[in-house]
Simulated scan of single mutants.
Amino acid sequence: MLPHFHLFCMVTAGIDQGSYQFEKQSFWEHIKVYQDIFRSLFSSDIKVVLNGRLGYKDTDGLLQKIMQYGEKHSIKVTLSIKEPNKENRYYKGLQFSVII
């Protein structure tokens, strides 16, 4: 049997200074790593799908701020927001998928 997925993990820790500044910056730092990996190894662009989860007081606001941060800093990646699955309680906070 072959696994149906592979796991790669990055962790960033810090303190937010308000307006999700830490989350926005850290998210995009991680996405840039994924971009570099897939461009250099596979000559491929990536798409990112955000999935809002429970764990933030304003998850929708966080997702919008993440998108705005990427636009403001001219980060070239296709980014979309998936309709939330309110029944899924497995993930807390922010979940995203990288599609190549």
Results as ranks from 00 to 15, higher is better:
Val48Thr: 04
Lys57Glu: 14
His30Ala: 09
Gln95Val: 01
Leu79Tyr: 05
Ile31Met: 07
His30Met: 14
His30Glu: 06
His6Lys: 01
Val11Arg: 10
His30Lys: 04
His73Pro: 01
Asp45Val: 02
Ser43Tyr: 03
Tyr20Gly: 02
Leu79Glu: 06
Ser43Leu: 07
Lys76Ile: 08
Ala13Asp: 04
Leu94His: 05
Asp60Ser: 11
Val98Gln: 04
Glu23His: 15
Val98Ser: 09
Gly61Gln: 01
Lys32His: 06
Tyr69Asp: 04
Leu94Trp: 03
His30Ser: 08
Asp16Tyr: 00
Asp58Thr: 05
Arg39Trp: 12
Ile37Met: 13
Ile100Ala: 10
Leu7Gly: 01
His4Leu: 07
Asn88Tyr: 11
Met1Gln: 08
Ser97His: 10
Tyr34Trp: 15
Gln25Asn: 10
Gly14Met: 08
Arg89Gln: 09
His30Leu: 09
Ile37Leu: 14
Asp60Glu: 13
Lys86Leu: 14
Gly18Leu: 03
Asp45Gln: 12
Val11His: 06
Ser40Val: 05
Lys57Gln: 13
Glu83Gly: 02
Leu7Lys: 09
His73Arg: 09
Ile75Lys: 05
Ala13Leu: 08
Ser74Asn: 12
Gln68Gly: 00
Glu29Leu: 09
Val98Tyr: 03
Arg53Tyr: 01
Val11Pro: 02
Tyr34Asp: 08
Val49Tyr: 01
Tyr90Leu: 13
Glu83Asp: 13
Lys32Cys: 07
Gln35Glu: 11
Arg89Ala: 08
Lys86Ile: 12
Gly55Tyr: 13
Leu50Met: 10
Lys65Arg: 13
Tyr91Glu: 07
Gln25Tyr: 06
